[in-house]
């Protein structure tokens, strides 16, 4: 039996609209997703403004305030948390069974998982644009076209952190273990990256931390977003992020493979 292209699109539309509807119904989740980066921006960055001016580095054309520097990192943070949130919901869905509803659909499993990632990515992109709008009114303005340039960067980053979350969800069997994921994945990924300080500055502080940050894919996601926001293409960063995304995606799909995946290890009566 062949499954036509139109049917694939219907399936994708269904998965995406469910995710958006759920998101609309969970207003507290939306507020939480925005409060986190805004606190960083208003409290942390404003406080360090004097202490941490950032010297002229690409892609910035002038000396910039720390608040300006931190914006792409906070955009990455929104997406990172969102990716983990959707993987959390996948563990929850699996315990609650709605992941099963998805997986008994006749569409190939890899396609269903990609639809799921796309849905989560779109939710995170909505959050990012609301955040950037608030930042704009606060006075942190990038070139207008930069807001268009970052869109593809946000899609790729959304898929990368989403695929990471999906992969983790195959390892995390119970919801209770999720706090561990926060501590051991989100925090190191965020802090050991160029989100808060440029790499050269980290290097002055600690060569080891610099080396870790230089190997952290999240650093490249942040740099890709940073350059895109100033209408530039950081090709190295794009390639690293795309490659990481593909590897994580392949592993996540493998993890959900019925023949060898984690689903098989959850026995039942």
């Amino acid at each position: 039996m062949s499954v036509g292209m139109g049917r694939y699109l219907h399936c994708m539309r269904g998965v995406v609209s469910r995710e958006l509807l759920r998101f609309v119904h969970q207003r507290s989740r939306f507020v939480a997703a925005l409060v986190r980066p805004l606190i960083w921006l208003f409290v942390f960055a404003a406080g360090f403004r004097m202490a941490l001016g950032v010297a002229m580095t690409d892609p910035y054309k002038t000396y910039i305030l720390y608040e300006v520097y931190i914006i792409p990192g906070l955009v990455g943070m929104i997406q990172l948390f969102n990716g983990m949130q959707s993987s959390l919901s996948m563990v929850y869905d699996r315990e609650m069974g709605s992941m099963r509803v998805l997986l008994v659909s006749p569409f190939p499993r890899w396609y269903l998982l990609v639809c799921k990632l796309l849905a989560g990515t779109l939710v995170s992109i909505a959050q990012v644009y609301v955040f950037l709008t608030i930042a704009w009114f606060y006075g942190i303005k990038a070139p207008p076209m930069g807001y268009v340039w970052i869109l593809p960067a946000l899609v790729v980053t959304g898929f990368m952190v989403g695929a990471l979350g999906m992969l983790l969800s195959t390892f995390v069997k119970q919801l209770e273990n999720f706090a561990g994921v926060m501590n051991f994945v989100i925090f190191p990924m965020f802090f050991l990256s160029s989100a808060l300080y440029p790499l050269w500055r980290i290097r002055e502080g600690s060569y080891l931390v610099y080396q870790i940050a230089a190997m952290n894919p999240f650093t490249y996601a942040v740099e890709m977003i940073r350059f895109a926001l100033y209408e530039q293409l950081n090709l190295d960063a794009v390639m690293i992020v795309v490659a990481t995304t593909l590897v994580l995606l392949a592993l996540a799909i493998l993890g959900y493979n019925p023949a060898r995946g984690m689903m098989a290890r959850k026995g039942g009566g």
Binding site: H10, G14, V15, L21, S105
Partner: peptide, 19 residues
């Protein structure tokens, strides 16, 4: 949190049906 109809149309989409 979704309506009965939203739950069912989600499932229909998973089977490739149009809206």
């Amino acid at each position: 949190d979704l309506s009965v109809r939203q739950n069912l149309t989600y499932h229909a989409a998973l089977h490739g049906m149009g809206p």
